[in-house]
């Protein structure tokens, strides 16, 4: 379970998070929606310890992670898989080397098991034939899927997805949505998905939280969000330029 309590974060004079509180249950898929630049990626980076909050607490399975030292934090981090918005593949390694990176360093799997896990992970995202390719030889969508294969190869307990459908065609995006659902159903993975793609949100979310102006303004099931009385949410989910959200 993930508990975020009153999280504040500023970069210089710019306040990004002003008291975010959110609880994500074990095995749940929580989708966080919000405008570009609303602090969604900043929020996700706090969960994995890439950023330290100015104040507030984050509990991962009852361990408060904001005060851990580097090595303790890395141990908690190994529960996570993170799909980056731009895939963040290591550009000096092949796709297979990217996927096996964590496996060969931090697991006790044999070479044979590592190889099998790499093939399985790449097959799951439809990249069976890309093992030997370098990242610069991949399209944007392929990079994203390779990044996903790297994240799930580790069999994480919690998956964080930063804009999983951005930059890929609708069919691939839907396949990734199916994969997120499959990982949740088959492996019981807890997922936090950052997106502004409402089609994906409705399909994969157990609950949706809307981040606006550094705060979570509403949390609910897809149905509750769809029927929300909030003018902010209605403007966002219908993608309208007119409405109370002006800062675009």
């Amino acid at each position: 379970m993930i508990r975020i309590i009153d999280l504040h974060k500023s970069f210089g004079p710019k306040v990004v998070l002003r008291g975010v509180s959110l609880t994500i249950e074990k095995g749940e898929t929580m989708v966080v929606i919000g405008q570009s630049g609303s602090g969604k990626s900043v929020l996700i980076k706090h969960l994995i310890g890439l950023l330290k909050p100015d104040s507030g607490e984050i509990y991962i399975d009852d361990v408060e992670i904001t005060r851990l030292d580097d090595d303790e934090l890395l141990r908690v981090t190994r529960k996570f898989g993170l799909l980056f918005q731009g895939a963040a593949l290591f550009d000096s390694m092949t796709v297979a080397e990217n996927v096996r990176f964590g496996l060969e360093r931090y697991t006790r799997l044999s070479e044979e098991e590592v190889r099998k896990r790499v093939s399985e992970s790449l097959a799951l995202v439809g990249l069976n034939d890309a093992e030997c390719l370098m990242p610069f030889e991949l399209s944007g969508g392929m990079k994203k899927r390779a990044g996903l294969a790297r994240a799930i190869a580790y069999r994480p307990e919690i998956m964080l997805y930063d804009e999983p459908s951005t930059g890929i065609d609708p069919i691939r995006a839907d396949a990734i949505n199916d994969l997120i659902k499959k990982l949740k159903n088959d492996l019981g993975i807890t997922s936090v998905v950052i997106t502004h793609d409402m089609v994906s949100s409705y399909k994969i979310a157990d609950r949706i939280a809307m981040l606006y102006d550094g705060e979570i303004i509403e949390v609910g099931t897809p149905e509750e969000i769809r029927n929300s009385k909030s003018a902010f949410i209605q403007q966002f989910i219908h993608g309208q330029a007119e409405g109370p959200i002006k800062d675009w």
Binding site: R78, G81, L82, F101, A151
Partner: peptide, 19 residues
């Protein structure tokens, strides 16, 4: 280049200490 393309964050996310 690794920093601006989030590869250092990726190292951290895979449990590796960038230092």
């Amino acid at each position: 280049t690794m920093k601006i393309t989030e590869q250092i964050d990726a190292l951290h996310s895979l449990g590796a200490n960038p230092i």
